[in-house]
Simulated assay, not measured.
Amino acid sequence: MILSIAKRPLLIASFGAILVSISEFWFYQVDEEVSHVGILLAYGLLGYLFLVVVERFKVRDGAALFVAAAMLGYLIEGVPVPVMYSGPPFTIVWTSLAWHALITVGIGWIVFKQVMTHGGILRVILFNAAFGAFLGLWNSYMWHALENDATGEVRFEWAPVQPFIDQFLIGYGLFLAGHLVFERVWSPSEGLTKGEHYGLWILAALFAALTGLASGLWFFFPVLPVMVLICLWALKRNARADLPFAGSKVAALAERPIPLWRYVFTLLIPLCAIGTYVTMVEAQIGLEMNAFVIITAGPISLGLFLWGLWRCARAMRRSGNA
């Protein structure tokens, strides 16, 4: 029990590092005044709440796991910041579902773990290289594109590449350290307590209310609790205490750690990202990657979310559910 409690800070820090690397440092230019420790703590606590929900609602399959990831996306964009309800319905999908749920959790944790653990060497190389190249293309837009609010016209103002390189390498360090530590301290059956569950929800609700109050967007604020409650309802309906957790898709994420030597191939992520980014900037090729990501990741993530809700809603309710 003491050992389990002692692992909590490591769980928070390591999972937070995975989330914050992709959702912040690999997503857009982080302002210098933003505290790196502060955003790591915010992502870590919300990520820990996600892990608590996964355990307490006995999430076993991919459909329910994506619903839980969607809930995390809504919390990320609604607790520390008011983005989630700043412009519904668009902000219900972007970035909560299309980035945080689909790319950060889906690709950056689940797919990454599966490929790195079970994929052949060629698949590992192609995945890391493609992920890095995608991030390089994406950031060449995010760091340099300026949109005219009145006309919607996009223009590019090119700047030195070194700030991007420095920030991306910080993100890579967090991503690598996060995975190395997290998969050695996390178990889907950690024995998380009801006190932690309710305490984290109270803390999240308090900060969300303060954020909503400060933003002045109280008219749209109910969008956040409604979407979170929809996710929790689906997860509760899907919970099956009568089924063994061993052998489930979620349990498989913790069964086998990534061999240490395979982490060498993750160097392709910063190499391909920085190489692609520098090429785009030096050639001044302005691709509207924002639109491309939204029109692809948006429908995919929304479809997965609706599919997850549908699968959870059809689950048989039995006594003993969470």
Rank of each mutant, 00 (worst) to 15 (best):
T276R: 00
P163N: 05
I170M: 10
M142W: 13
Y172W: 12
N139H: 13
I107V: 13
G247P: 02
Y74F: 14
S301H: 07
S35C: 10
F134C: 07
E282C: 00
Q162S: 08
W138C: 03
P9G: 07
V250M: 07
V20Q: 10
H118V: 03
P89R: 10
W201L: 14
G16D: 13
V185D: 06
F57M: 10
T117P: 00
C272E: 12
W99F: 06
V228A: 12
E288I: 03
A150E: 15
E183H: 03
Q114M: 07
I22V: 11
A145G: 14
L268I: 02
G199T: 11
G195F: 07
A133P: 13
R240N: 07
Y263W: 10
F221P: 00
S23Y: 03
A214Q: 14
L243C: 08
A130H: 00
G320C: 09
Q29N: 13
K249P: 00
C312W: 05
E147M: 14
V34M: 06
G87I: 01
W158Y: 02
P89D: 09
W186A: 06
G298P: 01
W94R: 02
K194L: 14
V111I: 07
F66C: 05
T279G: 02
E24N: 05
A315P: 15
R256A: 12
F168Q: 01
G136H: 09
D166Y: 06
M316E: 09
F207A: 06
S140V: 02
V53K: 02
G216R: 06
H36L: 08
E24L: 00
V124K: 01
D166H: 07
G108E: 03
V281P: 15
R318S: 15
Y198D: 06
L46T: 14
A315K: 06
D31A: 15
